[in-house]
Design a binder for these strands. Structure first.
Lengths: 171, 171
DNA sequence: CAGTTATAGTTGCTGCAGCAGTCGTTGGGC
DNA sequence: GCCCAACGACTGCTGCAGCAACTATAACTG
């Protein structure tokens, strides 16, 4: 039987997903040595790169792969561990900010060098600069297509225009 | 403050992960229209592309992102839904095969065209052939570094050689 | 052949994330 | 000022996946 799964499209996706899984596993292992889960690291990173080391819960959810309820729980845990604090929003009493504490920043600072080294070792360092550029350029174009609002909290993006096989806006 | 997070390595990983998340979300939505969860689709795909539409539970675990216990539960569910069956292994009475049923194959056949179309629309179709090749080539090289045993059940790979920042072999 | 070790699969327990429903807050229409 | 829809965050419930413990079988050793 001629295998339908040799279709280059399937292979392409398989490749991308395997790379993601592989890198995730490596990173998770290293992050846990520093007391972070993958999600926690993503959260604290997004916060730390934002002005004032803080972000509203909703915006945090939009920037991460989490739902708002997911963000609530993660921030719960990290607040219990002293890495974050909640701060009331002065303008809007419904909103609250998640803020990185000094302890959180310190733990992040201890984690980052090793993390960067891991990236270098397993990802960027595997390719010569030219090939890496090509890879990133391709990824960027796919990202722009597939990930409409990568930077919530700052600028909003034009409403996406579906082409065919339309449907499900976004979860 | 000069932001540490503008480091190109962080950006590269962020890009890759955003692409993965974006594609995952799209695919998940489409797959669920056909009654598959993402994991179930991965499982049935791996089975369907294997000789005899079957695979031992352990090999299935190695080829997917699941642990062996995870495979047990997924196969439980899919067997309950009539998509798979367990079959005893004649040589080794410890092992059992997971086999795709006709109903499973049919449901897969109904799903695949739309799935391929999604891939085309959101991923491969976003790039001209040359750029796509460059992207896939880069991914392939990273995959080879990071994902030692992509094809379990067939050939084994040479034991990985850690360089620096050693440690945790694999989960 | 008996005894030990390794392997295949399953299951109890735990932790996590999403959904849907709830409460408090905000802003617009009248 | 009052009412109602929209919004932000939180919580009960459910389903899922991994770990560790367990059973059954296989392979190895003397």
């Amino acid at each position: 039987m001629t295998n339908v799964f040799d279709d280059p499209r399937i292979t392409a996706v398989g490749l991308l997903f395997e790379v993601h899984a592989g890198l995730s596993a490596r990173f998770t292992a290293q992050l846990e040595e520093h007391g972070f889960s993958a999600v926690e690291f993503e959260v604290i990173t997004r916060l730390a790169r934002s002005p004032g080391n803080q972000l509203r819960m909703t915006d945090l959810a939009a920037q991460t792969s989490l739902s708002t309820s997911g963000v609530t729980r993660v921030v719960d845990r990290m607040e219990r561990d002293g890495l974050l604090t909640r701060r009331a929003c002065p303008n809007d009493r419904r909103s609250s900010y998640a803020v990185v504490t000094p302890k959180g920043m310190q733990q992040l600072d201890e984690t980052l060098p090793g993390h960067l080294q891991m990236i270098e070792q397993w990802f960027t360092g595997q390719l010569d600069p030219q090939a890496l550029d090509a890879l990133l350029d391709g990824l960027r174009r796919v990202r722009d297509a597939v990930h409409p609002c990568a930077t919530a909290g700052s600028t909003d993006v034009a409403p996406e225009q579906e082409t065919a096989a339309g449907g499900t806006p976004r979860p």
